[in-house]
Design a protein around this nucleic acid. Structure first.
Lengths: 221, 221
DNA sequence: TAAATTTTTTAGGTTTGCCTAAAAATTAAT
DNA sequence: ATTAATTTTTAGGCAAACCTAAAAAATTTA
């Protein structure tokens, strides 16, 4: 059976994975900052993770997860994002408040639980923030998805999903001829309310609120 | 906000609560046995729980939970049983395999999570083993329910529910004129297979297997 | 490139929750 | 009512995961 890791070890692995996405290799101080701990504590854990084969590390140098470490990271991310999806989709949490609870749930170590949860949720591909959910083998869907609110100006994208807490939103959007699959780009971002002026192909530009923009998931082209 | 307790503290509280149901007051060695720990470790934690006002305890004497301690116990039991219900009802776990996973889930400390889970499950009154689920205020339905298999000999009880994995069981029982609301008592327990001889009011005694007895929930009178 | 600064590691504590072994209190037996 | 047996507590350690302060290495700057 696969080894189990402590909550603390899991949090280190997750943070290292996160910092690697920005920076390839990670420094002790960056990780200390991210984990809200002192550098001395980080060093200690680095040695432990290396001894377990999860980390590639030489004293006084930067470090990164080993192949095995990355596999473990993806398992934890999978748990986290599936729980987030569950909380929003089934328990009616708003997507701002799920993170903290998912932070605890992600450490419940049962593969069977997570795989059954995945099935129960109909194998969702993205969590409520638009981040992709790794599958049972730790594979992540290459296609990236993000909320329309985070799409750069003038970058074309296709709508892939709409978080329809109320189905009101969906009907509002379809009245604007905005549906899943619609191609669009942002022409202007209004600073005072973060509303967006978006343009669909050859139609006239329309204005949508930040809230709506956050609920729309897009896939940049 | 209400204080939070460590996983270890929660497990002690839960075990003390469990042992109290049988025995009013609990001894160090009984608790050590139940928690699979050494008596010396128990003593240590007892002092901690007493200091926090959860336990009524005098050195060298037996002990029991304070009012506050009981309240905490019921919160933990509520979490545990709701998760068990969720695992069986939504994730299709079989009721034998839920305990271990629920044992981990029960320590996720978010009142909001549990109350929303409760609502999502439509406020179930009993977990898959037939144990009552405390409500959001920690109140337990007075009417106690237990599997027929655990009913003491010659004690009258009324059938309150049948776990009908297959509806086959229900029709088998109704062929014996055993339905929800039927009053019965156990006349004999056969040691070699744990089957029961049960008697309904003024009818003839019938024999049922341990498996069936476990699926029938009763309310002792 | 040598000194100054920053980063990382080492060394030595602390807390939590467990342990063993010995001492103290309680309970049982003669 | 003593003595014997059992139970509980105290005393002193250990591991995990954190900490502070000092030492060592790496990096930057003059």
């Amino acid at each position: 059976m696969p080894p189990n890791y402590s909550v603390s070890e899991e949090n280190y692995i997750k943070s290292i994975h996160y910092l690697q996405q920005v920076n390839e290799a990670v420094s002790t101080s960056a990780l200390a900052e991210h984990l809200n701990a002192k550098p001395a504590s980080i060093t200690e854990m680095l040695k432990k993770l290396q001894a377990k084969g999860l980390l590639l590390y030489n004293p006084y140098k930067t470090f990164r997860l080993s192949k095995e470490g990355n596999k473990v990271a993806l398992i934890i991310i999978r748990r986290h994002r599936l729980w987030e999806f569950f909380l929003v989709d089934k328990l009616q949490f708003s997507w701002e408040e799920v993170h903290e609870v998912a932070e605890e749930l992600e450490h419940v170590r049962s593969k069977k639980l997570i795989d059954k949860l995945d099935a129960f949720l109909s194998y969702p591909k993205f969590d409520p923030h638009g981040d992709p959910i790794p599958d049972a083998n730790g594979k992540i869907n290459i296609q990236q998805q993000l909320p329309l609110s985070r799409l750069p100006l003038n970058k074309q994208a296709v709508i892939t999903a709409v978080q329809d807490q109320s189905s009101e939103l969906l009907s509002f959007l379809s009245s604007l001829n905005i549906v899943i699959g619609t191609r669009l780009e942002i022409k202007r971002r209004l600073a005072f309310d973060n509303s967006l002026e978006i343009k669909c192909r050859n139609k006239q530009a329309v204005n949508i609120s930040e809230q709506v923009a956050k609920a729309i998931q897009v896939n940049p082209l």
